[in-house]
Write a protein that binds this DNA or RNA. Structure first.
Lengths: 116, 116
DNA sequence: TTCGACACTTACAAAATAGTCAGTACTGGA
DNA sequence: TCCAGTACTGACTATTTTGTAAGTGTCGAA
């Protein structure tokens, strides 16, 4: 996205939530603030590097807030900003759709690996 | 996504619509069937190769339908299946959010390029 | 008769994205 | 004392995704 403007609002959403784990992070934070380690366990399969990289980007973009308790050993929490919460509320219907169509989508993805 | 199952419905949605231009394609088809060339002009900046590759994947996944009029020179149309239409209806609120937050997101993206 | 439009295909290159693994500085528990 | 956990960083590699540029065969208009 080198362009400044989006011709479809969709592109704006993707500019913020594009990234393998970002929607998942926002989704998990919708139920309350979490520590880094908690997120690492919740977002299954995410590597430490990617989690932290995405957390940093989401923080920079104003979607989440980083709360550093200034302790040693470190104690850091993340939660959604207002902006982030407005995004999270968008994600809910997608989640429902995905849950409802879970089996169908799983079949589609499986077929893909066979045909190709 | 090597796993068969999704723990959040979100992952299912992304499994289908993951791809730079797929949401845009579905969005444009929501307003009626289109010919390949029309889509190429509507989805700005998409290369011919990516358009056709994504169209093929969406067709294989049952999101859109390819209608070949068996003419020479070729005349092919695409439109949404029922499944695709249910996805397109999810996209509408995202579009609205993006349109509403357009300026904000544009600012965020611009800032990103400066800071990094 | 040359040119563009049509809907593609293919080979190849570049860029974006993700992953592994080691290391940091400190603490508390076994 | 050794080891795991805390939240990270950086070097390096691998994979995935996207892009570029050329070619295919047919038609109708200039």
């Amino acid at each position: 996205m080198t362009e400044k403007d989006f011709r479809c609002g969709l592109e704006a959403v993707l500019a913020i939530l594009g990234g393998k784990w970002k929607p998942l992070i926002v989704y998990h934070l919708a139920s309350g603030s979490k520590r880094t380690g908690q997120l690492r366990r919740l977002v299954t399969n995410v590597s430490e590097k990617m989690l932290i990289q995405h957390l940093k980007e989401l923080t920079d973009d104003g979607v989440i807030r980083r709360i550093d308790h200034q302790k040693v050993p470190p104690h850091v929490e993340y939660d959604l900003t207002e902006f982030g919460r407005s995004l999270a509320s968008l994600l809910a219907p997608l989640c429902e759709w995905g849950t409802y169509h879970n089996a169908e989508v799983a079949k589609i993805v499986k077929r893909r690996h066979q045909v190709m």
